[in-house]
Every structure is written in structure tokens, then in C-alpha cells.
């Protein structure tokens, strides 16, 4: 009882305070900012198309006309990474946004109404969960021909089920809270209750898992491009790794640098996600702050 009395006073530091307490999250955020800047200024840094041959093929890193080396056709690896960041971030963010829309909508409906509706939606969700993610994504992209839209949709379609389950759980538990009952007794409509009462309170865990989902989406896109199912007009990190895999013994840098770019971006997103988790769900924070 006494401990509970202390807690609110210590919580004063606010969202950023809680976020900054996790050092990894700050580093992740800093790195993510760098990548975003790189993507934004790709055209300034490397005005030419990343597909252009600008150097001799097989130039090792730190050579004169290619900082990170060139690939089998003489394209600049650094330019590819800068422009690839755009594709990775774009696909990561849009596909996650689409997945959140589908997932939260279905989860909300399912958790709020319960009963038959819940059964129906959950069986539908399980249908998607039983199919291996990646295989389904490959099939979808292959059927709809590789393009930015088809890749985004394919990734979104395979990623929404966990979000739907999460949103459903949140809605179910919040549905039985007294403030929601109070909203019912004061005559608010179901839409108002879902939108104004429950959704804002269920947002924290959804934001956290969405931030982690961006990382998975980037990985999925890279894997698709690696298999040659990327958008043929766009340079992407996965494509670079895939194209260079046959010459990995002679020219390690061609797959190494894009691979590092994927690794660091995904790591940064995960760190940020964890920081968000600490900041938004203080009760679940791993370290006790009594």
C-alpha cells in the first residue's frame, strides 16, 4: 500500500525520461535517424541512379571512385546502400501501416463484440497463421508480379495476424473495465466506445509491436529481393546481397556492406521498440523501479 503511494511521484520524468533511461534505445534511435537522413539525402549524396555503372567492376572498398567498392557490373555499392535505404524504410513502414490497419480493425471488432464474431474472425486469423509467412509472401509476390505495391501488400498480408491477436486481447480486457461500463451506461455508442474509450488505452502495446514489425518487414523484403522477387526498378539491400552471393569468395564486400546495413537497421528498430516498450508500458519494464 505504501509502495503504491510512492510510485506516482517517481513517475514524473515523463515519456522521454523513461525512454532515455534505456541506453540501447537512444543509440538505436540515433542510428535510425542516420539511416533516415541517408535515405532522404540519397539523391544529394549520389545523384546518379544506383544502377549506373560508375566504376570498374570488382573494385575493392576504399578505391578511388567507389568508397565501399563496386559490384560485378561496376555499380557503386555505397550508392546502392543509400538508395536501398529508401526502399527498405518505405516498404518497412507502409507494409507495417497496412498490417496495423488490418490487424487492429479485426482485433478490435473481435475483442469488442466477442461471441460469434470473435469466433469467426479468430478462425480467419488462424487460417493465415497456419501458413508459413515467408512462403505465402513468395507466392503472393510471384502471382501479382514483383512491384512495390505487391511487395507491400504481400508483407502486410502475412504480418497482420499477431497484431490482430494482440489488439483482440487488449480490447477484451479493456472491454470489461469499469470505465467502459460507465461509457455504456452513459449512452455512448459502440463506435464512440471503441474509438474514444478503448483504442487510446490499447495503443501502447500496439505501437511497440508495430515498431518491431517494421524490422521484420525489412527482413522480409530483403529476403524477397534476395530471391529475385524485389521490384526490378528499385535498388534494395536484399537484391544486392542476392546478386553478389555467387561471387562472395572473390568479392566479400558486395554482400557484406548491404548485409551490415540490414543488420544495423533491424537492430536499431528492435532497440527503439524495446525503449518504447519501457516508456509506454512502465508496468512491464524489466527492471524494478520501486
Amino acid at each position: 500500500m505504501t509502495a503504491a503511494a510512492i510510485a506516482p511521484a517517481r513517475k514524473g520524468s515523463g515519456f522521454w525520461g523513461a525512454f532515455a533511461r534505456n541506453k540501447g534505445a537512444v543509440i538505436g534511435l540515433a542510428f535510425l535517424t542516420l539511416i533516415v537522413l541517408m535515405a532522404a539525402f540519397a539523391d544529394v549524396l549520389y545523384p546518379d541512379s544506383p544502377w549506373d555503372m560508375t566504376a570498374m567492376p570488382f573494385q575493392p572498398p576504399l578505391s578511388e571512385d567507389a568508397l565501399l567498392g563496386s559490384d560485378t557490373l561496376g555499380r557503386d555499392i555505397a550508392a546502392g546502400i543509400a538508395h536501398g535505404a529508401r526502399v527498405s524504410l518505405l516498404i518497412g513502414l507502409t507494409s507495417t501501416a497496412v498490417a496495423v490497419l488490418i490487424g487492429v480493425f479485426l482485433g478490435a471488432v473481435s475483442g469488442f463484440y466477442g461471441g460469434r464474431v470473435d469466433d469467426l474472425v479468430m478462425r480467419f486469423t488462424e487460417l493465415f497463421q497456419t501458413i508459413p509467412n515467408f512462403v505465402l509472401a513468395v507466392v503472393l509476390v510471384a502471382i501479382f508480379t514483383p512491384s512495390l505495391t505487391s511487395i507491400v501488400l504481400a508483407i502486410a498480408i502475412v504480418s497482420w495476424p499477431p497484431l490482430a491477436r494482440l489488439a483482440r486481447g487488449e480490447f477484451m480486457s479493456l472491454r470489461s473495465r469499469e470505465f467502459v461500463h460507465a461509457a455504456v451506461t452513459t449512452g455512448q455508442s459502440n463506435m464512440t466506445i471503441i474509438w474514444r474509450q478503448i483504442l487510446p488505452n490499447s495503443l501502447s502495446p500496439i505501437i511497440v509491436s508495430a515498431s518491431l514489425m517494421v524490422a521484420t518487414a525489412i527482413l522480409l523484403e530483403s529476403s524477397l529481393s534476395f530471391l529475385g522477387l524485389g521490384d526490378p526498378n528499385l535498388m534494395s539491400w536484399g537484391y544486392m546481397v542476392g546478386a553478389a552471393r555467387t561471387v562472395i569468395r572473390q568479392a566479400w564486400w558486395m554482400s557484406f556492406f548491404p548485409g551490415i546495413a540490414i543488420l544495423l537497421t533491424v537492430l536499431a528498430l528492435n532497440l527503439v521498440g524495446e525503449g518504447l516498450n519501457d516508456a509506454l508500458n512502465p508496468k512491464l519494464a524489466r527492471k524494478g523501479r520501486s
Binding site: 469499469e178 470505465f179 461500463h181 460507465a182 451506461t185 452513459t186 449512452g187 487510446p200 488505452n201
Partner: peptide, 18 residues
């Protein structure tokens, strides 16, 4: 509904924190 209103038990759970 407006004629019959309720006061709930738990003052911490019955007000939307946001």
C-alpha cells in the same frame, strides 16, 4: 439509460485515464 446511472466500485478503474 440516462434515467438510470451507476457509480462504480473501483475509482481507479472507472475513469478513463486518457
Amino acid at each position: 439509460r440516462r434515467h438510470v446511472q451507476m457509480v462504480f466500485q473501483d475509482p481507479y478503474a472507472s475513469l478513463n485515464p486518457r
